[in-house]
Amino acid sequence: MSAVLSTHGLVARYGDFQALYGVDTELGAGECVALIGANGAGKSTFLRAVMGLLPVAREMVRLDGEPVGGTAPDRMVQKGVAIVPEGRRLFTGMSVEDNLRVAIDQAARAAGKAGARAGGKGGWTLKRVHDLFPILAEKARTPVQSLSGGQQQMVAIGRALLCQPRVLLCDEISLGLAPKVIREIYAALPEIRAAGTAVILVEQDVGLAQSASDRLYCMLEGRVTLAGKSAEISRAQIGEAYFGVGHAVA
């Protein structure tokens, strides 16, 4: 398998606190990989480290085999990695449209600079984002603060897609949303993958993660404790890897 993104012994720390202890992962082109684990297992840290939001050694993250660890996030975006951050982190002073426009502006600027960037031809336009989430067209001029949580999450996803990513990192996109809204958002996933974008899903909901992904990694205390094809892993295996105990989980 040719990995578009891979990590090699990824180590990350917040000051003195070490959060990741040598994490090895691989993401194939167009693949969807889920990352599950309890709170504090290091899932969000993993995404932040990959995105360049935490300092890591160059060799620890590779994009198309090229070492990119510790590259600044804006450069990572140019290289084709986008993130839907935990808690959405929208630009609260702006309308829906302007939130999306930030990404469009920056992508246009990067494209103008680099000419035809290798790969990353996601071809995401405002119109395609509106087709994916029609409500965003309807609410284009609404300030993002007055949107519901689900709608805000759609803005965050749309914004990330307009960075034209080959790799999309999603941090707990279901958090705090109603089941119906979660289904709506996850329904967009096949369309995103059809555009050739590989996805890493960080997810608390194990069932959701398992059904939406090709493969999954389970993390515990900064280490990968289980990896495999989502369809082949049993709940018991996940329970063991999730809590680090042999038999406690139903």
Partner: peptide, 10 residues
């Protein structure tokens, strides 16, 4: 509004 998110948008 949000420097981290801005950096993550390029």
């Amino acid at each position: 509004d949000n420097p981290v998110a801005a950096a993550s948008q390029g």
